[in-house]
Nucleic acid binder design. Structure first.
Length: 113
DNA sequence: CGTATGACGTGGC
DNA sequence: AGCCACGCCATAC
């Protein structure tokens, strides 16, 4: 497993309950700006035994990335709602639940030292 | 070695 | 809101 991938998993694991983050934000936090696609790909092949709050990762628009109606989609909605995140038509209002730059700083720590 | 395909993002219209 | 073009890059064929 490449060290870069572990940083992606770590960034995902750091999303606090009741909040969500975009693929792009996760990639950036892992030191891989512009590589949101990699994050999406990795979520499709999480190592066995590794538990991650994958459901807290959304598109930059707040939309759930999985195909509407699919199993994962419904599961994601359920898990998010279960921890108090508002999901309407597969979309979450990032203005209230998303980690923006400032909050990232507070929760994830100093950007680059 | 090209081409296509994504749990993506941004900017333009 | 939508659509499109690009940029991105690991994998699969």
């Amino acid at each position: 497993m490449k060290e870069e991938y572990l940083r992606v998993f770590a960034a995902i694991a750091a999303i606090p309950p009741g909040r969500v983050a975009s693929y792009g934000a996760i990639a950036a936090r892992a030191g891989l700006p512009g590589r949101a696609r990699l994050v999406g790909r990795l979520l499709g092949e999480v190592p066995d035994g590794m538990v991650l709050p994958w459901f807290r990762v959304l598109r930059s628009s707040g939309q759930i990335a999985m195909a509407p109606g699919s199993r994962g989609y419904r599961e994601q909605c359920r898990l998010l709602k279960a921890e108090g995140v508002e999901v309407k038509n597969g979309r979450v209002p990032l203005s209230r639940f998303g980690l923006d730059a400032d909050i990232d700083h507070a929760i994830w720590g100093m950007p680059e030292s």
